[in-house]
């Protein structure tokens, strides 16, 4: 009898001890917390503009895997690039994605975001969301992968259009004509012009 209680006790202890590992946050919860935080920040009228931007940039940096995105965008040109070029590209690409993603979310600050579907397999996940506007629904799907127990976005697919794919082919065209240096110069100019 005592043995049984002890055994149950051990079992319970064991379960309790392991539960934090089981309760590791799923990709949807992690993604949702980021999107909600960004939208909250956008809606927060009390924040000064640069303060708000800083906060959102931090939130985006925390959830996007820009290194992986850069690698996939440059694709075959990635291995041809030098280490400095790679780092430069990651920096510039991250900046340009931050501003476009922020700009798009900003346009839809007051709409609701609905999480429709999620698929997880091993270390990858695809989460489908819909932005519900007054007239239409805009499907935005996120592709995430798990890196050190954290789910990071490595592609955003809006209306079937993958950001990575679109950038990849236009960047490839530029690299073909002007080389990686040419691409970096163009990106730098664009960013300088935009801000």
């Amino acid at each position: 009898m005592i043995l049984k209680i002890l055994r149950t006790g051990f079992l319970l202890l064991f379960l309790a001890g392991s539960s934090p590992i089981i309760a590791e946050e799923d990709p949807k919860t992690q993604l949702k917390s980021t999107i909600d935080a960004i939208l909250d920040t956008l809606r927060n009228k009390k924040l000064a503009t640069d303060e708000r931007q800083k906060k959102i940039t931090d939130l985006i940096n925390d959830r996007f895997d820009f290194a992986k995105m850069s690698q996939q965008t440059l694709a075959i040109n990635w291995k041809k690039a030098s280490k400095e070029q790679k780092n430069k590209f990651i920096e510039l690409f991250a900046k340009s994605l931050q501003s476009s993603y922020m700009g798009r979310l900003e346009a839809y600050t007051n709409e609701t975001v609905e999480f429709t579907k999620e698929k997880i397999k091993n270390k990858k996940a695809k989460i489908n969301t819909l932005i519900i506007t007054k007239t239409i629904e805009i499907p935005i799907n996120y592709k995430l992968h798990n890196k050190n127990n954290k789910w990071l976005i490595y592609d955003v697919v809006i209306e079937e259009v993958s950001l990575i794919r679109s950038y990849r082919s236009s960047y490839q065209n530029i690299v073909k004509k002007e080389g990686i240096e040419g691409l970096l110069t163009k990106m730098e100019k664009k960013l300088a012009g935009a801000s």
Binding site: G103, V161, Y167, S169, S170, N173, I174, A194
Partner: peptide, 13 residues
Amino acid sequence: GDALDPYLFVRDA
């Protein structure tokens, strides 16, 4: 506005 070559970007998209 964000694209380096809007023609290519739109075509691809």
